[in-house]
Write a protein that binds this DNA or RNA. Sequence first.
DNA 1: AAAACCAACGCAAACGTTTGCGGATAAAAC
DNA 2: GTTTTATCCGCAAACGTTTGCGTTGGTTTT
Lengths: 335, 335
Amino acid sequence: MKSPQVSISDIARDLGVAPSTVSRALKNHPEISRDTCLRIQEYARKVNYRPNALALGLKQQKSFTIGVIIPEIVHHFFSSVISGIEDLAYGKGYRVIICQSNEDYHREVINVEALSDHRVDGFLVSISKSTRDNKHFLNLSEQGIPIVFMDRATPEVDSDRVLTNDFEGARLVVSHLLKRGCRNIIHLAGPQHLSVGRERYLGYAEALKEAGVPLQDELVLKCDTPARVAQHSAKLLNLATGADAIFAVNDFTAVAAMRLLQDHGYIIPDQIAVAGFGDDPIATVVRPSLTTVEQRGYDIGKEAARILLNRLSGETEEDFKTKIFPAFLKVRDSG
Amino acid sequence: MKSPQVSISDIARDLGVAPSTVSRALKNHPEISRDTCLRIQEYARKVNYRPNALALGLKQQKSFTIGVIIPEIVHHFFSSVISGIEDLAYGKGYRVIICQSNEDYHREVINVEALSDHRVDGFLVSISKSTRDNKHFLNLSEQGIPIVFMDRATPEVDSDRVLTNDFEGARLVVSHLLKRGCRNIIHLAGPQHLSVGRERYLGYAEALKEAGVPLQDELVLKCDTPARVAQHSAKLLNLATGADAIFAVNDFTAVAAMRLLQDHGYIIPDQIAVAGFGDDPIATVVRPSLTTVEQRGYDIGKEAARILLNRLSGETEEDFKTKIFPAFLKVRDSG
DNA sequence: AAAACCAACGCAAACGTTTGCGGATAAAAC
DNA sequence: GTTTTATCCGCAAACGTTTGCGTTGGTTTT
């Protein structure tokens, strides 16, 4: 029953040639005769020879593997990102190792080390919320291992980035709410040390400014998960009495807020409008359906992988670039 | 800027000892003196030595990596499974390489080969819907590489399995619908060559039998995605006129059906009840909230990884086992 | 017929580890 | 003062590849 993997040496022994000949024959090296090539290739197929990627990686100092670190795979946005990465990478002969940080800094560091141990050729990273120190990423840069940040980036590390136009997306959706007549718009904000949270807040502020509506600091609440909505429910309900709209930094927080308000008798969007960010599938399924901003995870992943692979193949030698995907407003029933 | 990874030989050279001494010192081998051990370990830490997992894997014929093949990562169930796998595997020093088959047989085969090339120590698999031929899995078995199937299994391959009690779950939810007074229950069924689809259908049939309600073949529709719901919308709407409930093989299909009916004026659950399977987050967010069956992806993933790692460590030598997680009915507002 | 050449293949080192075995030094036993 | 024993360490092979260079034969030049 056990038939272990066959190696090049096995083939060489069976066919009475040298391992080097087998190696060359398998890649149609011109210095091997047509006959020998065919004979070896046929035999290799027969015994189902498969090259050992570990040995190959060791020899060539290149593992043809890229490491991905994301906060949480269960979020639709991130799983879309992964799909994009995989579709591109696998097409070019690269494998992908995925790690989750679970929004935990320490785990993120562990992940970097583990992937580094496996000699991944490059990194695709979405930084965890709790990460304040970026030394682990700087280390990689020093070693010449390329990183491309996706969606969540830090200015501390000089590298490529692929982002959504968070600022513009937030500005668009808040402008929309203002045009609808809303004047007291609550913002459920994300962490301000990450570009995502910061830019969306700034877009919110810009929209208000453009409309000549003063920014009220007390309407900005640091609250970016359903859990935090539950935690701050009293405060949020209190705020809501004087508000006519909510703009949340992501869709699940928006939906959680919507639920909370509905449970307390609010009619949405008549009494209070709600908007999110990301266009999660949840947005179309919730009632009323959620107004939000489209954020194309699949495309972001694919583009990030493309940039990384270009660097790895040495085609890109220029300075680091930041690719920003446009944000599109998705007006639905909630606001 | 470029400071390449340091190897054991580098340390040996710098410290004037042999590589073997360094190797042993790093793992506190008793034959190395306390002094040398400390000196080497300190230096290793200083230069940030990290073992090369490729070399290690090559030498020990063990990569400490497990391969995961799932249909689509964007489904909450599967991403939960992955989280469970990772949490267990990383804790025991194993890495995880994830591949998506996208429900495509050919891609599944490619994935098996790719992971096999990387000499993963074992496989965790949820079979793609379009897979009819299981030769690629049988090959692995022949080579003595352990597989644990999760959720979707095939009887053709002798291996460990971790499943939900699909039969019982379906029986429970259909019984519930019957108790509610429904008599003409449509079943949106999954593919019958996979245990999941088959068992859920059988549970549906069993519940009807127990209640003395005859099974009407024309009420069973092969339809297990929102896309298929859209595709079969006319037929479904036609069926619905004479039905009082729908039991769908999964939650997104249930929700899609619910939407379709609602768009055509149906009041749910008054005119027609709807139930799904899986307890996707979508179930709690949709209105009316969806009655469904809980299916613990995280636990399934964790258990599957546990079983696989036990086999890898040689602790398990017995026959293959099938672990079946109980199914719990989640009664909500839709039926 | 010696020199030069070419086609086809083998040798051996290298990638970074681990590990069995043997060797050196020094202390302990006789 | 020789032998034993223990302690500490180095040599070299091996894992599966790739690749520069060397080695065969045999064919073509002059």
